[in-house]
């Protein structure tokens, strides 16, 4: 096994592209090292990206924030600007693991590990976040929503790595929230989850919304019908009921040791409703 610590994203992309065997990127390592220890993967090449310039930084950009791919959950939580603008994204990232895991785990690692239950992914999709990707043929931008391809798989091609994720600017009166259901309060994996990002107009009416579910399908689910149920309303009970129904209709979960189809479907609706109300309250407090 080879271990490399390139100084630039281009070098990293080349190392990955040229590796004939199995390659893994090492960000926080809280997935990849655990998988190696368990014998689930035995990479021939490990590329540690943490020495790449800027990759560990959070920068303001066009009223939004560019989050480097090596930024840990703990670092994100200490950034006042991101916390104020994207509280739902921050709370999602900070649900990952424990204090120890927070010191290492990154949102991009969470995304690229490809788990349908990854906590930060629904919140990033609700935020309409965009990933910046470097590959052997240069750089491209891609909505986070289009990165997951299914359990353990992404749409990234050989040699590509994500260098940052961009959280766009947002108007006054906008906020987001993320909730997950786990049997335990910590050290657990989402059985169902929901992220809601919305914008309220001057009258407190919802004028923009994105509703996203996690752990209820092979990929994260953006539920357009659920968002539509909220838009133009004050999130009165009938609007919330319609949103919940749309969410449940969008669920296509599996029965497994972590939960049943019926349970996941039921709870996804409950979480979406609660997250919407939290986002509304946060947005109201801002406007």
């Amino acid at each position: 096994m080879r271990y490399e610590r390139p100084q630039t994203a281009t070098q990293a992309a080349q190392l990955l592209a040229n590796e004939p065997g199995l390659a893994r990127i090492l960000a926080g390592g809280t997935d990849v090292l655990v998988q190696m220890k368990a014998g689930m993967v035995t990479p021939d090449l490990v590329v540690d990206i943490k020495k790449i310039a800027q990759i560990g930084n959070i920068q303001s950009e066009e009223g939004g924030y560019r989050i480097g791919a090596a930024v840990s959950g703990a670092q994100l939580g200490e950034h006042a600007g991101v916390c104020a603008q994207w509280p739902g994204v921050v709370e999602a990232a900070q649900l990952i693991g424990s204090t120890q895991v927070q010191g290492r785990a990154t949102m991009v690692g969470n995304l690229c590990n490809g788990s349908p239950a990854a906590d930060s992914v629904p919140a990033l999709v609700a935020a309409n976040a965009v990933a910046r990707i470097t590959g052997p043929n240069g750089t491209r931008d891609c909505p986070v929503a289009d990165i997951p391809a299914g359990p353990g798989r992404t749409t990234l091609t050989k040699g590509e790595l994500i260098t940052s994720v961009f959280l766009p600017a947002r108007p006054q009166g906008a906020a987001d929230a993320y909730l997950r259901f786990t049997p335990r309060t910590e050290m657990d994996i989402a059985v169902a989850s929901a992220a809601v990002s919305l914008t309220l107009d001057a009258q407190g009416r919802c004028c923009e919304a994105r509703v996203v579910l996690g752990a209820v399908a092979p990929r994260v689910v953006l539920v357009a019908e659920a968002a539509a149920a909220l838009i133009g309303t004050h999130l009165e009970p009938p609007a919330l009921d319609a949103m919940v129904a749309a969410c449940r209709a969008a669920c296509a979960p599996i029965d497994d040791k972590r939960g049943t189809v019926a349970f996941r479907t039921q709870v996804a609706g409950v979480l979406a409703k609660r997250a919407a109300v939290i986002a509304q309250t946060r947005a109201g407090a801002k406007s």
């Binding site: 049997p183 335990r184 309060t185 910590e186 050290m187 657990d188 994996i189 040791k257 972590r258």
Partner: peptide
């Protein structure tokens, strides 16, 4: 494993 064999943690 302890992920899916759910012994309570302190915060529970």
């Amino acid at each position: 494993g302890f992920l899916d064999y759910r012994t309570p943690v302190a915060s529970d």
